[in-house]
Amino acid sequence: MKKGLARGLVTAGVALFAVVALAACGSKGADTKSEDKTIDDLKISFVPSRNPDDIAVATKPMASLLQDALKKQGYTVKKVDVTVGTNFEAVGEALASGAADVGYGVPGSTYALYKDDVNVILTATRAGLNKDSSDAKDWNDGKATEPTDKQATSYRSILVTGPSEKGQALAKKVNAGEKLTWQDLKDVNWGLSSTTSAAGYVYPSLWLNDNFKHTVMDLAHTVTIDSYGSGLARLASGQIDVLPMYADARRDYAEAWTSTYGQKESIWAETNVIGVTPAIYNDGILVSKESKIMTPAFQKALQAAIKDMATTDAGKKVLAVYSHEGYKDAKESDYKSEFAAEQLLQKNAK
């Protein structure tokens, strides 16, 4: 045999052996990975749509509850880190960077801002409310907003005025059936949530655009609130005149209105709704595309585990801080109106 041919056969043989060996190793590695259902650390970040301290206390038991629920799905999670973001954007940034694996209670507007970096896996369901009118004065009967037995996947943002002189003047006009003008609204003091808050910023901006061809960026006097609790404290004291909030926020803070904020009359007597936005799709549970543990299989297990957890008494107690009563599987197209809203804000910001 010629040396060149022999060398060629040897080289081919070595290459073939290498390919087979690599294939065998790759197959073994893939099998091992597919069978590995142990997660060292699952990081969950909650949005601060209520008082961050209240959320931190209420969600503390979630770690063990979720570990138990995931075990039923065949996954062993050694550690669950539960934290509360400093604001809505902080949760979005943590998901975008992979610093958090799961974002919990994330509004659609925040999802819209970070949709290239996250997947939505679940949408919360909540009890519907006995008030759902688009006419603001229908909310001002002095009676509490109460939950119904019907589960809802959307909610309203309401623009609420307090006991300040300017706030009462706006409410008086609305309750008399008169239409507000841009002049009525632009110079009063507004409390706004962070820029990705659906109820506290995005949809109020859409309401202003639909009715007056302006957005919140055109308002003369605004302050940023870090939670609805602190915003209602400012509203009660007269520091601000208007506070946009989710539709059942007054119910959540009815006791604090008199006990913590020191008001003499009930929140239903001292506040009025002057604007109601279109329906907003409920909060979502998002997972990071940058997360190293968020495989399709684990995402599916997480969906099932959270839905299962929400049916238990202990799970319901944890989720009550967000008024979540259950969850349904979600997809990106569910939030198309939120995406459109965010595009409008981005356009107006230029």
Rank of each mutant, 00 (worst) to 15 (best):
A297V: 05
G8Q: 05
K316C: 00
G229Q: 08
M294S: 02
G238Y: 05
G326K: 04
I306V: 15
D248R: 11
V160I: 14
Q303I: 11
A21Y: 12
V321I: 15
P204I: 09
T258F: 00
V242I: 08
D138P: 04
D141R: 03
A198N: 11
K137D: 13
N211L: 09
L235P: 02
T215H: 02
G177K: 01
L286H: 03
M1F: 01
W268V: 07
Y335L: 10
G229K: 02
D36P: 02
G4E: 11
S193F: 07
W139G: 04
E325S: 09
L22D: 09
T181N: 08
R156L: 14
W207C: 05
N348D: 13
T86G: 14
D141N: 12
P296I: 02
E165M: 03
A254L: 02
L319T: 05
Y335E: 08
A233I: 04
A99I: 00
L42V: 04
K264Q: 12
F339E: 10
G191S: 12
G162A: 06
V20H: 03
G275H: 05
K150Y: 00
A301H: 04
A341V: 13
A24R: 07
D141M: 03
K213A: 15
L319I: 12
W190N: 04
Q263T: 12
L206Q: 14
V276Y: 11
A58Q: 12
K28L: 14
L235C: 09
V160L: 05
N140W: 08
Q73N: 04
L243Q: 14
Y335F: 15
D334Q: 07
G103R: 10
G85C: 10
D187S: 15
V216M: 05
A30V: 10
L159M: 14
W139I: 10
A23E: 02
S27I: 10
P147M: 07
G103A: 12
L42R: 03
A124L: 08
T295R: 07
K328F: 07
G262N: 06
L345E: 09
Q168M: 00
D138F: 03
P296F: 05
D141Y: 04
T125D: 06
D101A: 11
P61Q: 07
V276Q: 03
N51K: 08
K179I: 01
A90Q: 12
P48Q: 13
D283W: 00
G128K: 03
T181C: 01
K347L: 10
T195C: 00
R126F: 00
A69S: 15
Q73V: 09
K150M: 01
T32V: 06
K316E: 06
M245L: 13
A297E: 14
A69D: 06
Q168Y: 02
P163A: 14
E338Q: 14
S323C: 09
T215E: 03
D241F: 09
S291V: 06
G74Y: 09
Y327D: 04
N348M: 15
G128R: 03
D187P: 05
V82K: 00
I274C: 05
G128P: 03
D313P: 00
V14C: 13
L208I: 02
T195I: 06
V120N: 00
T196H: 13
L16Y: 07
K350G: 10
N211Y: 12
F46E: 01
D252R: 06
L319H: 03
V223L: 06
A349Q: 13
V106L: 07
A144R: 11
D138G: 03
